[in-house]
Amino acid sequence: MTKQTQTAVKKPTEVEENAGVAIEITGMNKWFGDFHVLRDIDLKVMKGERIVIAGPSGSGKSTLIRCINRLEEHQQGHIIVDGTELTSDIKKIDEVRREVGMVFQHFNLFPHLSILENCTLAPIWVRGVPKAEAEETAMHYLERVKIPEQALKYPGQLSGGQQQRVAIARSLCMNPQIMLFDEPTSALDPEMIKEVLDVMVSLAEDGMTMLVVTHEMGFARQVANQVVFMDQGQIVEQNNPEDFFNNPQHARTQEFLSQILH
């Protein structure tokens, strides 16, 4: 586990003040065919809040956050993102996707485009930003993730950690209100995990609303306002990190923590 030393990140109480609901999920259910993946999910995320979602493999963590930008479709209940309810209305979906950035386990950069083009494509073609301005923004975020010098290279020429940082920058270029992370460090070699986590910590410090699926419990302790524990498609326990780690309520949470923390 990566060591996270500083704890400069704002904690829950500070967040709740600037109110405003970012994501509200109520009574949500989802099936893959006959398989009931998500059961009765209720989750409320305030603006500026950082939620870490943990749980055993196959518990539905990825599916849950993919529902938030409609990469997966839910069959029951409501998901309201930034005031927009997700239905089959494509306009609404596109609206939500513009405001919600996502970072994937396997980076999913566009291999046929340069790093800079990866970052400018969506601002130019979705937001209609002029090219020069989009490139300026892209360079700003590439500097922020500390790889401006790679701008003209192609994704295939970068290391995993660098690619993941580009993926974060690419999302940020759309100026999203909410960022979703699906195990952003799981495909990385240990020595590259820190560079990605550092970027995420600095994002959190800037007050970005974040939903992070991760097994990096150090990150959760340092950054999260809330830790959500999922098992078999249900939210089993949800608590602030302090209590979640030191005083888990549920037997399954205890078992999971004992495994993951050795």
Binding site: N69, L71, D94, R97, G101, N108, L109, F110, V126, M174
Partner: peptide, 10 residues
């Protein structure tokens, strides 16, 4: 690839 594109709002 298509998921990344979709998530960017394309």
């Amino acid at each position: 690839q298509s998921e990344a594109a979709a998530s960017l709002g394309l």
